[in-house]
């Protein structure tokens, strides 16, 4: 991709982000419920006290002025103060982001590691019993409501078998000073392998719950594209030349078959990042999704506003990455 194209893509980003921010702002403004009344609750408050609180939260300005100052501040990296945490929104979100990203990436790895071999094998052994079972697995995977799966996994693996913990990122016998914020990486950087193992145990159930539907989708994609590739001329030709099947498979077929898988995976990662609030709630995972949903319910406008913007940026970037991956893997496509 040449630099000109690159900047053109970047420019397209601006109206999308502006639109997303505006819609989010208007939705919040039109949602009934007053954060000030929520904070005061059942306690008595004089009109002066209410006014003070309203001013402190920045709610005393007219609507459009609030949006304008949100935009002006956002450009400088200031997203306002969370009504309830009473700290900068950027800080609060920043604390939660690593947990969400880590969970999504591990879920992605779970999905890739299960879906690619299954999909490839299902394609090679098309219409065998293996193919049918793999297909059934993938269909069950996309048909299962995530929260139900999560609770079932907890009942089986945490309560009955006691193999995995119910909630959290790591136990309390390990102290891991954050370096990157990603527990799996930090434990390795500290060469604390016991803590690394424990982190794996904590992330296992939520990652499987989150990764299963994605594994199902990716398996379908892999199987389909593998079938297509296997019918391509060059594979038939290589076969005819008498090349070893293994060699044909790894050198030629697999690489090409994975192109759609990888680009679908990149795009689906966006929905993992934005769709994990239920898994985070069930497994007590200290991520962003849970925080955003709670913030909607308590009308924590600045936090919701900033998070939505972050999701939009992530979405655009992931599409971008998907495009780049597509080009890298498949040089015939030019962006």
């Amino acid at each position: 991709m040449n630099p000109a194209k690159f900047f053109q893509r970047l420019l397209q980003l601006a109206p999308v982000l502006l639109g997303v921010s505006f819609i989010a702002f208007m939705m919040l403004a039109m949602t009934p419920g007053d954060p000030v009344a929520l904070i005061i609750g059942e306690h008595a408050a004089t009109p002066e006290q209410i006014e003070t609180l309203r001013r402190d939260l920045g709610l005393n300005q007219p609507l459009l002025q609030r949006f304008a100052s949100f935009l002006a501040d956002a450009v400088t990296g200031n997203f306002g103060t969370s009504f309830y945490h009473r700290r900068p929104v950027a800080e609060v979100i920043g604390e939660r982001l690593p947990a969400t990203i880590e969970l999504s990436l591990v879920a992605l790895i779970v999905a890739l590691v299960t879906s690619i071999p299954l999909g490839v094998l299902a394609a090679i052994r098309k219409n065998t019993i293996f193919d049918r079972i793999a297909t059934l697995f993938s269909l069950v995977g996309v048909s299962m409501p995530g929260f139900w799966l999560g609770i079932l996994l907890i009942m089986i693996f945490a309560v009955n078998l006691q193999l995995f913990p119910v909630a959290g990122r790591i136990g309390f016998s390990h102290e891991v000073d954050p370096i990157t914020g990603f527990m799996l990486i930090d434990t390795l950087l500290h060469r604390n392998f016991a803590a690394f193992g424990e982190t794996l145990r904590y992330i296992a159930l939520p990652a499987v719950t989150l990764g299963l539907p994605m594994a199902a989708i990716l398996m379908r994609v892999t199987r389909t594209s593998m079938l297509e590739v296997l019918q391509q001329d060059y594979v038939t030709f290589a076969n005819a030349k008498g090349l070893k099947p293994r060699r044909i498979f790894f050198r030629h077929a697999l690489k090409n078959a994975l192109i759609p898988t990888v680009s679908v995976a990149a795009i689906e990662t966006g929905s993992l990042l934005g769709g994990n609030m239920i898994v985070e709630t069930i497994f007590g995972w200290p991520g962003l999704g849970r925080l955003v949903v709670e913030s909607i319910f308590v009308r924590n406008y600045p936090l919701v506003q900033a998070a939505v913007l972050l999701y939009a940026v992530t979405y655009v970037l992931l599409n971008f990455i998907a495009d780049i991956l597509y080009t890298l893997l498949n040089p015939r496509v030019k962006l």
Partner: peptide, 22 residues
């Protein structure tokens, strides 16, 4: 296409939750 792009920028569930709250 712009409207589509903007809507795609919202995570589905969060968008629906926001609308339901509204």
């Amino acid at each position: 296409s712009r409207i589509v792009d903007i809507l795609l920028g919202f995570p589905y569930l969060i968008f629906a939750i926001g609308l339901m709250a509204m």
